[in-house]
Simulated scan of single mutants.
Amino acid sequence: MNRTLIETDSLSKSIDQLLAHKGFSLDNRKICAVGSLSSSLEYHNAILILCEKKKYGSSIALLRSQFESFIKGTWYFHCASDEEIDDVYNDKLNKTFGSILSELKSQDVSAWEDNLLIKNQFWSQLCGFTHTGAPQLGRRFKDGNISPNYSDELIESMLNLSNLLAFKTLLEMLLHVDEHVPKEEIVQVISSNRMLKDLYNDGL
């Protein structure tokens, strides 16, 4: 698990470095999209910090928020109508997360299949960790004492999913920057993480 933590830290720093001093020409749509995407990246960093402090329950609880922020930021830019953006901006949007994912699918937004797979396979567990359900409660004790009981396999899987979401969030954010980002800079981010190197071995 230590290696995964080190790679997560390296990925987070690589993303921060790539985005540093990047400009965004902001209108209401981009404020909603970029704001949500940047929140997702902050959750990724918070998950890392909590894991380093061995606060595993709190770290996993943030994974749903990281995923949601990424999906919503993507939807704001690619799918939301002007009226819906106004509703988001004024905190009046009334739309389910499932319908947002369905619209990403219907408009064939890049990699929507991966996002739907994450929703279908992990959503109930993510909600359980976030809302202190059974997945969270059962891991609060060890040998009858209050002590974290999260397996290394679970933590590594959580970090890998968080890292994948962070990279996908980065790719989405780069659609909004004012300047061209050379592919070599993105490849450098990939090289910071073993899982990403395996996934993107054949290129972006």
Rank of each mutant, 00 (worst) to 15 (best):
Phe122Gln: 01
Tyr56Asp: 01
Ser58Gly: 08
Lys119Asn: 11
Ile71Thr: 00
Lys53Trp: 12
Gln107Thr: 09
Asn94Met: 11
Phe67Trp: 08
Leu37Cys: 08
Phe129Ser: 01
Ala46Phe: 13
Asn115Val: 09
Asn145Asp: 01
Leu26Lys: 07
Gly138Asn: 11
Asp114Ser: 12
Trp123Ser: 02
Gln125Ser: 09
Ser99Lys: 13
Gly133Asn: 10
Tyr89Ile: 04
Glu52Val: 01
Phe67Pro: 02
Phe77Glu: 07
Trp75Gly: 03
Gly133Trp: 14
Asp82Gln: 12
Ser147His: 15
Ser147Trp: 14
Ile85Phe: 04
Tyr150Glu: 02
Phe24Trp: 14
Ala33Gly: 09
Thr130Asn: 06
Asn115Met: 14
Cys32Glu: 12
Lys95Phe: 07
Cys127Asp: 06
Pro135Ile: 00
Ile100Glu: 03
Glu113Phe: 05
Lys92Gln: 12
Ile60Glu: 04
Ser147Glu: 14
Thr74Phe: 04
Ser58His: 13
Ile47Trp: 04
Leu116Gly: 00
Gly128Ile: 07
Asn94Arg: 15
Asn120Pro: 00
Leu48Ala: 04
Tyr89Asp: 04
Thr96Gly: 06
Gly128Arg: 06
Asp108Met: 10
Leu101Gln: 03
Gln125Met: 09
Leu26Asn: 02
Val109Ser: 09
Cys51His: 09
Lys142Cys: 08
Ile15His: 08
Ser102Ile: 07
Gly144Arg: 03
Ile31Ala: 10
Phe70His: 12
Lys30Tyr: 14
Phe97Arg: 01
Leu18Trp: 07
Trp112Leu: 00
Gly73Lys: 09
Pro135Lys: 03
Asn90Pro: 01
Glu103Thr: 10
Asn145Cys: 08
Gly98Asn: 13
Trp123Gln: 03
Ile118Leu: 09
Ala80Trp: 14
Phe97Ile: 01
Leu19Gly: 01
Val109Leu: 03
Ala61Trp: 12
Phe70Ala: 05
Leu104Thr: 01
Phe141Arg: 07
Asn120His: 11
Ala20Cys: 06
Trp123Glu: 03
Leu117Thr: 13
Cys51Ser: 14
His131Asn: 05
Thr96Asn: 05
Ile60Asn: 06
His131Arg: 06
Lys142Met: 10
Thr132Met: 08
Arg139Cys: 00
His21Gly: 04
His44Trp: 07
His78Trp: 15
Thr130Arg: 04
Cys51Arg: 00
Lys72Trp: 09
Glu103Trp: 13
Glu52Phe: 12
Ile47Thr: 05
Asn145Arg: 05
Leu116Val: 12
Asp91Asn: 14
Gly73Phe: 08
Tyr56Gly: 00
Glu52His: 11
Phe129Pro: 00
Lys30Ser: 07
Ala20Arg: 08
Phe70Trp: 13
Ser102Met: 09
Asp87Pro: 01
Leu63Gln: 11
Val34Phe: 13
Ala61Phe: 08
Leu50Phe: 11
Lys22Leu: 03
Leu19Thr: 07
His78Ala: 12
Asn45Gln: 14
Arg139Lys: 15
Leu37Lys: 05
Lys54Cys: 07
His131Thr: 01
